[in-house]
Design a protein around this nucleic acid. Structure first.
Lengths: 189, 189
DNA sequence: ATCCCTTTTTGACTTTAGTCAATGGATTTG
DNA sequence: CAAATCCATTGACTAAAGTCAAAAAGGGAT
């Protein structure tokens, strides 16, 4: 199990000595997703938290035949750090591997239990919740205030790894526009 | 100080006997905002949490001469329950009274301190954070997936109190469209 | 390399929202 | 009461994205 990446990510937020990390890392399980496989299938609750140790995934909702991508997850990202009420209504939410992925996963309840014992982990959890909220808040603002072209340029400069690794019709779904429109935006940019 | 409303709202989420509520309520301060006054001014950090005990407010960002409303707060809503990282970047965020408002406010640090002592309050805090995240998540989806007309109809059926109490150019700012367009949507609906 | 399949691009046209300017209504103010 | 102000509506036009269909470009697989 390659754990350098998650150790690095955790240490960005909390202090964590090697022994503690050893104990912590034992509670993860590694899973491998082939291209197109789902981590969260429609109708399921997100009972796990996951760490992307490699690959890239998309989180999307399907409605009336169309797919709307809410987020991409790349190496180093945590997924599903919010408590149950969030996922409750997300009956149609799916998280799918765009390419081969390796995830480190842990039941949500186990993390919650650990948080009870470790001040450090509690700090980690609340930091990430605030972080995720802030990201979503900013995405909401961009969607509300900016044109598709501005949002595409934002992606280009802030998340180039997504532009590079993801088919353009997924980028279009993420931006809320049609693939044809994205193609035209690229041409005139 | 009228405290029935906040007591009712708290009791939707946690159990709270009258003595505990007495102690808790002493830590709030009441403030009154006239129409047009700000609770959060541009450039300020949200160092307080607030409860709307009456009236209605708008949370918005100003950019290049235009205003974009992210949210309305009505009686019974809590404001600013997320930790600092969220507000950090929101340099241009403002929360303004649309009409005369009464707020119950408490420094964020005081709430955090209280949470350390009370399992109940901790539960309340994490419930509301998850709740706010979920709401924002759903708003994001609607903005991404639905037309302005669909979003207006959603508002009509789910938040009629906002439609009734708020000038239409604010509704337009909230929906991400121009007032003229909203006027036309209303006509054809 | 060729074939097949998927993705991207292009073109012509339609639909929708934005823009600008003018009008009409309502409310407030002198 | 009239004037002024603010907001909502309407009309004519422009700009932008959607739609549908077809062509071009990649990317494997045999």
């Amino acid at each position: 199990m390659q754990l350098d990446l998650i150790k690095k990510e955790l240490r960005k937020v909390i202090s964590l000595d090697d022994e503690m990390f050893q104990d912590f890392s034992k509670l993860f399980r590694t899973i491998r997703l082939e291209k197109g496989e789902f981590w969260i299938k429609e109708g399921r609750r997100a009972n796990y938290i996951g760490f992307v140790n490699g690959g890239i995934l998309r989180q999307y909702v399907q409605q009336e035949g169309e797919e709307f991508i809410q987020n991409f997850y790349v190496s180093g990202d945590f997924m599903g750090l919010f408590a149950s009420p969030v996922e409750e209504r997300n009956k149609t939410l799916r998280i799918q591997a765009i390419e081969v992925c390796e995830l480190l996963v842990m039941p949500y309840e186990r993390l919650k239990c650990l948080i009870g014992f470790s001040k450090n982990l509690e700090q980690f959890s609340s930091h990430w919740q605030a972080q995720k909220y802030s990201e979503l808040d900013q995405m909401y603002f961009r969607l509300l205030a900016h044109t598709p072209e501005q949002r595409y340029k934002w992606l280009l400069s802030h998340k180039p790894e997504i532009i590079n690794q993801v088919p353009q019709y997924y980028i279009a779904q993420y931006l809320g526009i049609k693939p044809e429109t994205l193609s035209r935006i690229k041409k005139r940019a």
